[in-house]
Amino acid sequence: MTQGLTLHQTAFALTTSLLIFLFILELVRRRRLREEYSWLWLLAAGAMVLLVVWFRLLMIITHLVGAVTPLNTLLLFAVLFLFAIAVHYSVIVSRLTSQVKNLAQELALVSARLEERER
C-alpha cells in the first residue's frame, strides 16, 4: 500500500469519491441542499478525489503528521471531518434556535396587539 495504489484500487476509490462529489452537487442542483451547507461536503469529496489521483500527497501528509501508515492518516482526517461537520451543525442549530425564538416572540407580540385592537 505504501508503494502506491493498484489500478484496481484507484478505479474503485476514484469512482466512489466522484460519485459522492456528484451526489452532493445533484442535491444542490435540485435545491434539496442549500449552497451554504454544501461546502464542507464538497470539500471532503474533493479532498478524496485529490488524494486518489495524487497518492504521493497522502504519503507526504502521513509523514508530516507522524502517522505510521496512510490508513491512519485517512482515519484521523475522517474523524476530524466528522467532528467539524457536527460542530458546524451545532452552530447552525444554535442560530436557528435563536431565530425561531425571536420569530415566536414577535408573532406573540404582534398577535396580542391585533387581538387587543379588535376587541
Partner: peptide, 22 residues
C-alpha cells in the same frame, strides 16, 4: 390582565424576555 401567548413552549427565560420586549 393583558395576555401575550407564545405559539409554543420556549422556556421561562424566553417568556420573560417577550415581556421585556413589549
Amino acid at each position: 390582565a393583558r395576555v401575550v401567548r407564545l405559539p409554543f413552549n420556549l422556556g421561562a427565560g424566553v417568556a420573560a424576555q417577550t415581556g421585556y420586549k413589549l
